[in-house]
Design a binder for these strands. Structure first.
Length: 190
DNA sequence: AGCGGGATTTTCT
DNA sequence: GAAAATCCCGCTT
């Protein structure tokens, strides 16, 4: 077994974000192994008014400036967590927000945790964190290892990827840094 | 299908 | 003190 190659994360988030589409996340929780496929992402860069890292390092955003492949999990709206994968070189504050995933294994468990069925279990950044049990305790966790592991997949062709502006932000709204697998039913919205 | 408001608390000004 | 990389519910078309 050769260990997977994560070097594609050591680049700017705008380039890593589409590359993460189709990659698999393996979550071990409550004695189960859940597998999902990433179907929607957004890039956040240091030179980007919408990014938490825009105004420099703080105790909250410290992780974004760390090595690629670590998780940046933040708490928002008093209730929700969102999960990012840190990208680029150490010292650069950038990350890719995971906005939606498609269950491959363990869909019934995810539906039960969320008390929702079908796409509603994982078609949003906070929804998928709730479903997969991702919270502050995983902030800074290296995605190379369990209990939340990234399994890289071959790059999807450009023809399978749709690019749009990002969702839910008030600054830099026009930047086309949201990426999703075209026609995938688990995408958060059109 | 689409809009509007409320929930709830961390983080930063 | 205000905003926040969201979600859910109820109401109106």
């Amino acid at each position: 077994m050769s260990s997977p190659d994560f070097s594609f994360l050591q680049t700017r988030s705008t380039k890593a974000a589409p590359r993460l589409l189709g990659c698999v996340l393996e979550r071990t929780v409550a004695g189960r192994t859940i597998r999902v496929r990433i179907v929607e992402t957004e890039a956040y860069d240091q030179q980007d008014a919408a990014s938490h890292s825009y105004k420099g390092k703080t105790s909250r955003t410290d992780i974004m400036f760390g090595p690629a492949g670590c998780l940046y999990v933040y708490f928002t709206y008093g209730m929700y967590y969102c999960c990012n994968i840190v990208t680029d070189q150490e010292g650069v504050g950038s990350a890719v927000l995971i906005r939606a995933v498609e269950p491959l294994e363990g869909a019934a468990y995810l539906e039960r945790v969320r008390d929702k069925v079908g796409v509603e279990a994982t078609n949003g950044p906070a929804k998928l964190c709730q479903a997969l049990g991702i919270d502050k305790t995983l902030n800074g966790h290296n995605i190379r290892y369990g209990p939340l592991r990234l399994i890289p997949q071959p790059s999807l062709g450009a023809s399978m990827i749709t690019v749009t502006p990002r969702i839910g932000i008030s600054k830099a709204q026009e930047m086309p840094w949201r990426f999703y697998i075209t026609d995938n039913p688990y995408v958060s919205r059109r």
